[in-house]
Protein backbone atom coordinates (compact mmCIF):
# COMPACT_ATOMS: atom_id res chain seq x y z
CA UNK A 1 0.00 0.00 0.00
CA UNK A 2 2.64 2.48 1.05
CA UNK A 3 4.78 1.34 -1.84
CA UNK A 4 1.90 2.07 -4.17
CA UNK A 5 1.50 5.61 -2.86
CA UNK A 6 5.19 6.44 -3.18
CA UNK A 7 5.16 4.74 -6.56
CA UNK A 8 2.56 7.20 -7.78
CA UNK A 9 3.67 10.24 -5.82
CA UNK A 10 6.87 10.88 -7.72
CA UNK A 11 5.42 10.72 -11.25
CA UNK A 12 2.40 12.77 -10.17
CA UNK A 13 4.57 15.40 -8.54
CA UNK A 14 6.79 15.58 -11.58
CA UNK A 15 3.79 16.09 -13.88
CA UNK A 16 2.39 18.82 -11.60
CA UNK A 17 5.70 20.63 -11.34
CA UNK A 18 6.29 20.31 -15.05
CA UNK A 19 2.90 21.89 -15.82
CA UNK A 20 3.48 24.63 -13.26
CA UNK A 21 6.87 25.44 -14.75
CA UNK A 22 5.36 25.41 -18.23
CA UNK A 23 2.71 27.88 -17.10
CA UNK A 24 5.29 30.15 -15.54
CA UNK A 25 7.45 30.11 -18.65
CA UNK A 26 4.59 31.28 -20.85
CA UNK A 27 2.46 33.43 -18.56
CA UNK A 28 4.60 34.57 -15.65
CA UNK A 29 8.06 35.26 -17.02
CA UNK A 30 8.31 38.62 -18.78
CA UNK A 31 9.10 38.97 -22.46
CA UNK A 32 12.83 39.49 -22.87
CA UNK A 33 13.56 42.85 -24.50
CA UNK A 34 16.26 42.05 -27.08
CA UNK A 35 15.47 38.48 -28.06
CA UNK A 36 11.70 38.42 -27.69
CA UNK A 37 9.64 35.32 -27.04
CA UNK A 38 12.33 32.90 -28.26
CA UNK A 39 14.22 33.61 -25.09
CA UNK A 40 11.57 31.53 -23.27
CA UNK A 41 13.40 28.43 -24.51
CA UNK A 42 16.08 29.41 -22.00
CA UNK A 43 14.27 28.14 -18.88
CA UNK A 44 13.78 24.52 -19.84
CA UNK A 45 16.94 24.48 -21.92
CA UNK A 46 19.16 25.40 -18.97
CA UNK A 47 17.22 23.10 -16.66
CA UNK A 48 17.66 20.09 -18.93
CA UNK A 49 21.35 20.86 -19.44
CA UNK A 50 21.84 20.95 -15.69
CA UNK A 51 19.96 17.76 -15.05
CA UNK A 52 21.69 16.07 -17.95
CA UNK A 53 25.06 16.84 -16.47
CA UNK A 54 23.81 15.82 -13.04
CA UNK A 55 22.72 12.49 -14.49
CA UNK A 56 26.23 11.96 -15.74
CA UNK A 57 27.58 12.77 -12.32
CA UNK A 58 25.23 10.20 -10.77
CA UNK A 59 26.49 7.62 -13.29
CA UNK A 60 30.02 8.47 -12.22
CA UNK A 61 29.16 8.05 -8.53
CA UNK A 62 27.30 4.80 -9.21
CA UNK A 63 30.28 3.51 -11.19
CA UNK A 64 32.78 4.32 -8.44
CA UNK A 65 30.52 2.76 -5.81
CA UNK A 66 30.05 -0.34 -7.95
CA UNK A 67 33.78 -0.87 -8.35
CA UNK A 68 34.36 -0.40 -4.63
CA UNK A 69 31.36 -2.30 -3.29
CA UNK A 70 30.31 -4.61 -6.10
CA UNK A 71 26.60 -4.36 -5.30
CA UNK A 72 24.36 -4.66 -8.34
CA UNK A 73 22.23 -1.70 -7.17
CA UNK A 74 25.07 0.71 -7.94
CA UNK A 75 25.43 -0.73 -11.40
CA UNK A 76 21.71 -0.32 -11.98
CA UNK A 77 21.88 3.26 -10.74
CA UNK A 78 24.73 4.08 -13.14
CA UNK A 79 22.96 2.45 -16.08
CA UNK A 80 19.60 4.08 -15.40
CA UNK A 81 21.08 7.50 -14.82
CA UNK A 82 23.01 7.37 -18.08
CA UNK A 83 19.93 6.44 -20.06
CA UNK A 84 17.78 9.16 -18.49
CA UNK A 85 20.63 11.67 -18.72
CA UNK A 86 20.97 10.95 -22.42
CA UNK A 87 17.34 11.97 -22.92
CA UNK A 88 17.92 15.26 -21.13
CA UNK A 89 21.13 16.08 -22.98
CA UNK A 90 19.36 15.28 -26.25
CA UNK A 91 16.70 17.84 -25.34
CA UNK A 92 19.38 20.37 -24.48
CA UNK A 93 21.10 19.92 -27.81
CA UNK A 94 17.96 20.03 -29.96
CA UNK A 95 16.46 23.06 -28.23
CA UNK A 96 19.82 24.78 -28.17
CA UNK A 97 19.88 24.54 -31.94
CA UNK A 98 16.31 25.81 -32.16
CA UNK A 99 17.29 28.79 -30.05
CA UNK A 100 20.51 29.47 -31.95
CA UNK A 101 18.79 29.78 -35.32
CA UNK A 102 16.59 32.83 -34.60
CA UNK A 103 19.04 34.36 -32.13
CA UNK A 104 22.30 34.04 -34.08
CA UNK A 105 21.15 33.04 -37.54
CA UNK A 106 22.58 29.51 -37.54
CA UNK A 107 21.47 26.23 -36.04
CA UNK A 108 24.89 25.48 -34.81
CA UNK A 109 27.67 27.70 -33.60
CA UNK A 110 30.68 26.37 -31.78
CA UNK A 111 29.75 28.07 -28.58
CA UNK A 112 31.54 26.37 -25.65
CA UNK A 113 28.46 25.39 -23.68
CA UNK A 114 26.70 24.01 -26.74
CA UNK A 115 29.86 22.17 -27.75
CA UNK A 116 30.37 20.59 -24.34
CA UNK A 117 26.76 19.39 -24.47
CA UNK A 118 27.55 17.76 -27.79
CA UNK A 119 30.63 16.12 -26.28
CA UNK A 120 28.56 14.84 -23.36
CA UNK A 121 25.94 13.55 -25.75
CA UNK A 122 28.55 11.57 -27.69
CA UNK A 123 29.96 10.17 -24.44
CA UNK A 124 26.51 9.06 -23.29
CA UNK A 125 25.86 7.42 -26.64
CA UNK A 126 29.22 5.61 -26.49
CA UNK A 127 28.38 4.47 -22.96
CA UNK A 128 25.03 3.11 -24.13
CA UNK A 129 26.68 1.33 -27.05
CA UNK A 130 29.18 -0.27 -24.68
CA UNK A 131 26.29 -1.38 -22.47
CA UNK A 132 24.64 -2.94 -25.48
CA UNK A 133 27.73 -4.89 -26.52
CA UNK A 134 28.49 -6.60 -23.22
CA UNK A 135 27.97 -10.30 -22.62
CA UNK A 136 29.36 -11.29 -19.22
CA UNK A 137 27.03 -9.75 -16.65
CA UNK A 138 29.40 -9.03 -13.78
CA UNK A 139 32.49 -8.30 -15.80
CA UNK A 140 30.48 -6.23 -18.25
CA UNK A 141 29.17 -4.11 -15.42
CA UNK A 142 32.76 -3.45 -14.40
CA UNK A 143 33.67 -2.39 -17.94
CA UNK A 144 30.74 0.00 -18.01
CA UNK A 145 31.74 1.38 -14.62
CA UNK A 146 35.29 2.04 -15.78
CA UNK A 147 33.98 3.78 -18.87
CA UNK A 148 31.52 5.80 -16.79
CA UNK A 149 34.40 7.02 -14.65
CA UNK A 150 36.80 7.80 -17.49
CA UNK A 151 34.07 9.53 -19.48
CA UNK A 152 33.02 11.75 -16.61
CA UNK A 153 36.59 12.70 -15.79
CA UNK A 154 37.19 13.91 -19.34
CA UNK A 155 34.19 16.26 -19.26
CA UNK A 156 35.90 19.06 -17.27
CA UNK A 157 39.06 18.63 -19.35
CA UNK A 158 37.00 18.94 -22.52
CA UNK A 159 35.30 21.99 -21.08
CA UNK A 160 38.60 23.80 -20.53
CA UNK A 161 39.95 22.73 -23.90
CA UNK A 162 36.84 23.91 -25.73
CA UNK A 163 36.68 27.19 -23.84
CA UNK A 164 40.29 28.08 -24.52
CA UNK A 165 39.91 27.01 -28.10
CA UNK A 166 36.89 29.31 -28.52
CA UNK A 167 38.08 32.35 -26.59
CA UNK A 168 38.49 34.27 -29.82
CA UNK A 169 34.73 34.21 -30.30
CA UNK A 170 32.35 36.43 -28.31
CA UNK A 171 30.80 34.92 -25.21
CA UNK A 172 27.28 35.05 -26.56
CA UNK A 173 25.58 33.59 -23.56
CA UNK A 174 27.41 35.46 -20.85
CA UNK A 175 25.34 37.30 -18.28
CA UNK A 176 25.92 40.72 -19.78
CA UNK A 177 23.75 39.99 -22.79
CA UNK A 178 20.63 39.04 -21.00
CA UNK A 179 19.52 40.90 -17.91
CA UNK A 180 17.89 38.33 -15.66
CA UNK A 181 15.05 39.87 -13.67
CA UNK A 182 13.67 38.30 -10.47
CA UNK A 183 10.59 36.77 -12.17
CA UNK A 184 12.91 35.19 -14.73
CA UNK A 185 15.06 33.74 -11.98
CA UNK A 186 11.99 32.33 -10.19
CA UNK A 187 10.83 30.71 -13.41
CA UNK A 188 14.25 29.21 -13.98
CA UNK A 189 14.38 27.81 -10.45
CA UNK A 190 10.91 26.27 -10.75
CA UNK A 191 11.90 24.75 -14.09
CA UNK A 192 15.02 23.37 -12.50
CA UNK A 193 13.00 21.82 -9.68
CA UNK A 194 10.51 20.36 -12.17
CA UNK A 195 13.28 18.77 -14.24
CA UNK A 196 15.03 17.39 -11.18
CA UNK A 197 11.86 15.70 -9.97
CA UNK A 198 11.18 14.45 -13.50
CA UNK A 199 14.69 13.01 -13.61
CA UNK A 200 14.14 11.28 -10.26
CA UNK A 201 10.84 9.78 -11.43
CA UNK A 202 12.31 8.50 -14.69
CA UNK A 203 15.41 7.21 -12.91
CA UNK A 204 13.25 5.29 -10.47
CA UNK A 205 11.18 3.76 -13.24
CA UNK A 206 14.30 2.75 -15.17
CA UNK A 207 15.85 1.18 -12.07
CA UNK A 208 12.67 -0.77 -11.38
CA UNK A 209 12.71 -2.05 -14.95
CA UNK A 210 16.26 -3.32 -14.48
CA UNK A 211 15.41 -4.98 -11.17
CA UNK A 212 12.45 -6.73 -12.75
CA UNK A 213 14.69 -7.92 -15.57
CA UNK A 214 17.06 -9.33 -12.96
CA UNK A 215 14.19 -11.08 -11.23
CA UNK A 216 13.08 -12.56 -14.55
CA UNK A 217 16.61 -13.75 -15.32
CA UNK A 218 16.89 -15.30 -11.86
CA UNK A 219 13.54 -17.03 -12.34
CA UNK A 220 14.65 -18.42 -15.68
CA UNK A 221 18.00 -19.55 -14.28
CA UNK A 222 16.21 -21.31 -11.44
CA UNK A 223 13.86 -22.93 -13.94
CA UNK A 224 16.81 -24.21 -15.91
CA UNK A 225 18.61 -25.39 -12.80
CA UNK A 226 15.62 -27.23 -11.35
Amino acid sequence: MRDKITGWALPALSVLLFLAALGMVFFYAPREATMGDVQRIFYFHVASAWVGFFGFFVTFCGSVAYLLRGARTWDILALASAEVGLAFITMTLLTGMLWAKPAWGAYWIWEPRLTISAVQWVLYVAYSMLRGALDAPERGARFAAVYGIVAFVTVPLSWFAIRWWRTIHPQLLSGGEMAITPPMLTTLLVSLAAFTVLYAALLRARMQLERERDALAALRAAQEGA
Partner: peptide
Protein backbone atom coordinates in the same frame (compact mmCIF):
# COMPACT_ATOMS: atom_id res chain seq x y z
CA UNK B 1 32.83 -6.92 -26.11
CA UNK B 2 30.83 -8.31 -28.99
CA UNK B 3 31.62 -5.45 -31.37
CA UNK B 4 35.38 -5.33 -30.65
CA UNK B 5 37.27 -3.30 -33.29
CA UNK B 6 34.14 -1.45 -34.32
CA UNK B 7 33.43 -0.28 -30.81
CA UNK B 8 36.93 0.92 -29.95
CA UNK B 9 36.92 4.18 -31.95
CA UNK B 10 33.39 4.96 -30.78
CA UNK B 11 34.45 4.60 -27.16
CA UNK B 12 37.89 6.13 -27.48
CA UNK B 13 37.53 9.21 -29.67
CA UNK B 14 35.09 11.15 -27.43
CA UNK B 15 37.53 10.72 -24.56
CA UNK B 16 40.35 12.12 -26.67
CA UNK B 17 38.64 15.42 -27.48
CA UNK B 18 40.56 17.53 -24.93
CA UNK B 19 43.82 15.81 -25.86
CA UNK B 20 43.31 16.36 -29.58
CA UNK B 21 42.27 20.00 -29.18
Amino acid sequence: TRAREVLLPVLLLPLLIPLLI
